[in-house]
């Protein structure tokens, strides 16, 4: 298991962390992680602190999530990106689609 999810203590945030390699091998697990979110006011956060590698399949998965959660009121946050990951997100102009910190 390289994917972890947790709620913040006020349950206003749902955090997904991917450890190590974020690529197509995560497709199902990643989809499942957010598929049961029913509360559209919840703030979805992908925490990249432990993500070392990322490729275009992961970018696709993030876009897919964005599409699935389009009824959510708050933008999806991508946080704790190390510079190399940030670069990949920037190349694909994800800053326009997600809130990146």
């Amino acid at each position: 298991m390289n994917l972890f999810t947790e709620y913040s203590s006020d349950r206003q945030q749902f955090i997904i962390r991917v450890k190590g390699k974020f690529d197509f091998s995560m497709v199902q697990e990643f989809r499942q992680a957010y598929s049961e979110l029913s509360d559209s006011s919840i703030n979805v956060v992908v925490d990249f602190r432990e993500t070392e590698y990322i490729d275009s399949a992961a970018l696709g998965m993030l876009l897919n999530m964005r599409k699935s959660l389009s009824n959510h009121t708050r933008p999806i946050q991508l946080i704790n990106c190390r510079p190399e990951i940030r670069k990949i997100l920037d190349i694909s102009r994800f800053d326009k689609l997600f809130q990146i910190d």
Binding site: D55, S56, I91, L97
Partner: peptide, 26 residues
């Protein structure tokens, strides 16, 4: 495609072609 994707304001409608632009940039 990635550029079209976002700058063409279709916001992720086309979910492919991103890989090549990553290679081109890196």
């Amino acid at each position: 495609v990635a550029e079209e994707n976002t700058e063409g304001a279709i916001g992720g409608e086309v979910n492919f072609g991103r890989g090549l632009s990553l290679i081109r940039e890196l």
